[in-house]
């Protein structure tokens, strides 16, 4: 499982995260919501080793991975799927998948390992030899997730999987994440739009200005009006709503 304690980080001198605590348990989906600029992507990138935290601790299954390089974090079993369906555009679908599993060595049979992916996203099998840049945005997101899936991480971090996708493409992608979590993976999803992933989440945390303002089960937060208030910058901390 993933445990984050009192995490502080930023870009250069600009502080973004101000003391984040969270935990993601195997088999559960933790949804992190928050408005634009709340620091959600920074949080995922810091956990995954792309940004060195200024304070705090990141633990993967009890092992301290704070400040470890991203490629080593991935090898330790924590995989980040970056936002904007980033795959390797001038490589084929097959090669993108091969690279996803490459670090696990040669004892894995490619066919076996990608079979579950093709079952959920058959389009990837059909386009196996197409270059990734020729896929649609939704297909690229499927590929990005598939590339992470074949790595069989213990913890999956997923940055705005719905970003830039047509509405119809989002449900199968979320369903895939749900199934994936059910296999015992701890899944952390970041989304900006409140309702996109609320139905598949177990736990929800609302981030704003680099801190977690609200946290609870998905069921609790669904009914909580404060969620929208936080999003719209209205009426928190007893301040007047309007000037």
């Amino acid at each position: 499982m993933l445990r984050v304690a009192d995490l502080h980080a930023g870009y250069g001198r600009v502080p973004v995260l101000r003391g984040i605590d969270l935990a993601a348990r195997p088999g559960e989906i933790l949804l992190i919501l928050g408005p634009n600029g709340a620091g959600k992507s920074t949080l995922l990138r810091t956990i995954a080793g792309f940004i060195r935290p200024t304070a705090g601790r990141v633990e993967l299954d009890g092992r301290d991975i704070t400040g470890t390089a991203p490629e080593e974090v991935t090898r330790a079993g924590l995989r980040l799927v970056l936002d904007g369906h980033r795959v390797f555009p001038r490589l084929t679908v097959r090669d993108n998948l091969r690279l996803g599993v490459a670090f696990r060595g040669r004892q894995f049979d490619f066919g076996t390992i990608v079979a579950p992916v093709f079952e959920v996203f058959p389009i990837l099998r059909d386009k196996l030899h197409a270059q990734a840049r020729d896929l649609s945005g939704g297909q690229q997101q499927m590929l990005a997730l598939a590339q992470a899936f074949v790595a069989q991480p213990k913890v999956l971090l997923c940055d705005e999987p719905s970003l830039g996708l047509a509405q119809a493409l989002i449900p199968p992608i979320l369903a895939f994440l749900r199934r994936w979590a059910a296999q015992g993976t701890a899944v952390v999803i970041v989304e900006q739009q409140i309702e996109v992933a609320l139905d598949i989440a177990d736990q929800v945390a609302i981030m704003e200005r680099g801190a977690i303002q609200l946290a609870g089960t998905a069921a609790e937060l669904k009914r909580d009006k404060r969620v929208q208030e936080i999003y719209l910058g209205l009426g928190e901390r007893g301040e007047p709503l309007m000037p």
């Binding site: 490629e71 390797f88 490589l91 090669d95 690279l99 490459a102």
Partner: peptide, 27 residues
């Protein structure tokens, strides 16, 4: 660059450094 796994990994670094590191490629 288009067939060998190692060469593919080097191509991947050129195409998207962050995505390559996220994929566990030892840059």
């Amino acid at each position: 660059h288009t067939r060998a796994l190692t060469g593919l990994a080097i191509s991947a670094i050129a195409q998207d450094l962050d995505a390559a590191r996220a994929a566990g490629i030892r840059v």
